[in-house]
Design a protein around this nucleic acid. Structure first.
Lengths: 329, 329
DNA sequence: ATCGTAACTGTAATCGATTACAATTTTGTA
DNA sequence: TACAAAATTGTAATCGATTACAGTTACGAT
């Protein structure tokens, strides 16, 4: 593969001039430009990003941190990030931590080693202390999950309000025994959604019963199945379930069906995220729709601004309750 | 951020020695090593990949090309690729083409520009001519989708056989009117699966009827819904459907349910890929399981070998028919 | 013809690492 | 003690681009 020297030699100019042509500098005469362009074509030359990046001290890569690629919640966000990145001549490094600190470390090092110009973290399991340390020297944006009282810029939704509305919806439909399938409350979003759940119950003078609050380890379908299995074994079964993720809700739905019960007649279900599959279940799933694509776009724009050195503001986006069959027959 | 010179100065040694410490070269005395390590710690130094990559003429990034991240079929493959990459000190650049040639071009250029050391393409819509051109100068591996009679190394399964077995399974259950929901037959896997479908029908002297073969544009759930909608409008409805992807099959399942029909009693359904959702539908989906994780591992290993300059052989992996509720009540 | 200015081009330093080769120090042995 | 060999360290070139600055050329005005 040819390099810039060879192009310069072939065109009979200096490497500086070739570089100017490559970067569309205005001060190159048309004749010279033509000579260089011909040489580039003849040699099939492609500039090496390695040289350019070193000289410019940038990689034009954005690191996107997420716990697992298999949760469809992230796919639309990633689309938004990626489109925005490309529109700004960046690209993204998609990094799955599997909630494994060792993995996380590898990725943090990639940033420290200048292999990425900044980070968007969507990982609730991220080590916040280390992330904050990283943020002292490198741009970092939080997407969806953030740190209460922290100083890292974020884009998210109002989780408490969304949960409140979801549960209120169930109450309005006549449900009085509403269970919560939550994930681990070490996560901020889990605590916030629980707060929303409790606020709605209190507002309507419904009791908050601990045996109706189930915590899952992960957000896989299977965790939803297990959660519902437990709930169905209770003496006093709930008549409705609010799950903090569609994947959990779909697992729950599956388990209800397995037991020959009917959704929503026996048990109503509301999920969270509006993943594409939520419209394909039987019955279709009532859920909270987050503006995932837009969230991705905004996160990417925030990060790019931050890399440029601009100040960025936190953003809270609107959500929407999508009512489908799983809550109303 | 400190660089290697500053570390060298602080430690009172040359940059060469610092580099040796960084790379664990054996010929550094314990005393010197200690001095250098202290300097590194004191300065909070992290080596820049930009410099290292330029010097080594490598990026240690593998480019993974796929049409869309939202098809869950890819997620397990990606896991396999990523784990293998990390184990070999590589990382992956996940690149969604959206089947958009312009996007594709951007990614091809990243390889030409040395931003990635090689490519794993899982994109059936890829421009094979351009990919072949790229392969003249850069390592390229095909994963899952490959080129018949082409010269690019690949890892895949026997699509024709898998489809044959899936359809044979339906026949053995007594189905005689079996429809095929296929994707565009410009894709090799689609042609191969159709061949398998037809081979099974012929073997049992069942007629091949064109109105029972539906072609979808994409592989989204919605395409499956549409396909099934068409099939249900036929005068003579099929009693079973083989869909070449679980996403299509799940869409089809949804549409059958919507029409008040029962799966599998009225219509049996078999999918392809064994995505994690396929076990969560109601009824659960009979499908062909591809060894996705292993396929990813193998593809990554092939690519890394190829980057090293080793010769690599094509590999065809085993698949498995997973029988669930959607084919047998 | 001369000069000043604008337009263009080249020289060489630079980004931050690696490494061949040379130089130095240490070690072991006679 | 002296010397060869081995171990350790340093010098400087190198990867492939960008760019400040200097140098050259072209051209219109006087």
């Amino acid at each position: 593969m040819a390099n810039i020297q060879q192009v310069a030699q072939k065109a009979g100019v200096s490497v500086a001039t070739v570089s100017r042509v490559l970067n569309n500098a205005p001060s190159v005469s048309p004749k010279t430009r033509l000579k260089v362009e011909n040489a580039i074509r003849d040699l099939n030359y492609e500039p090496s990003m390695l040289g350019r990046n070193l000289r410019n001290s940038e990689s034009r890569l954005l690191l996107v941190l997420l716990p697992s690629i298999s949760n469809p919640f992230y796919t639309e966000i990633i689309n938004g990030i990626q489109n925005t990145a490309i529109a700004n001549s960046y690209n993204i490094l998609l990094c799955e931590t599997d909630s494994n600190p060792q993995r996380e470390n590898i990725y943090f090092n990639m940033v420290k080693n200048k292999l990425a110009d900044g980070v968007i973290s969507m990982d609730p399991t991220v080590n916040m202390q280390k992330l904050n340390e990283l943020a002292e020297n490198h741009p970092v944006i939080l997407c969806s999950e953030y740190e209460e009282g922290g100083c890292l810029p974020y884009v998210t939704i109002d989780n408490e309000l969304a949960a409140y509305q979801a549960v209120k919806h169930l109450i309005k439909l006549g449900n009085e025994k509403i269970a919560l399938i939550n994930s681990d409350e070490k996560f901020l979003y889990a605590r916030q959604r629980r707060n929303g759940y409790e606020r709605a119950l209190k507002e309507f003078n419904l009791p908050i019963r601990n045996e109706w609050i189930y915590h899952t380890k992960d957000l896989d379908f299977q965790n939803g199945v297990q959660a519902m299995r437990m709930l169905l074994q209770l003496d006093e079964k709930p008549s409705a379930v609010f799950a903090v993720s569609d994947t959990l809700a779909i697992g729950a739905l599956k388990e209800v069906n397995m037991n020959g019960l009917h959704v929503p007649n026996d048990i109503a279900i509301v999920g969270f995220d509006n993943i594409s599959f939520s419209n394909m279940t039987n019955p279709t799933l009532t859920t909270i729709s987050q503006p995932m694509y837009r969230m991705g776009v905004i996160a990417a724009n925030m990060l790019i601004s931050s890399i440029k050195g601009d100040k960025v503001e936190n953003i809270i986006l609107d959500h929407e309750l999508i009512i489908r069959e799983s809550s109303m027959g």
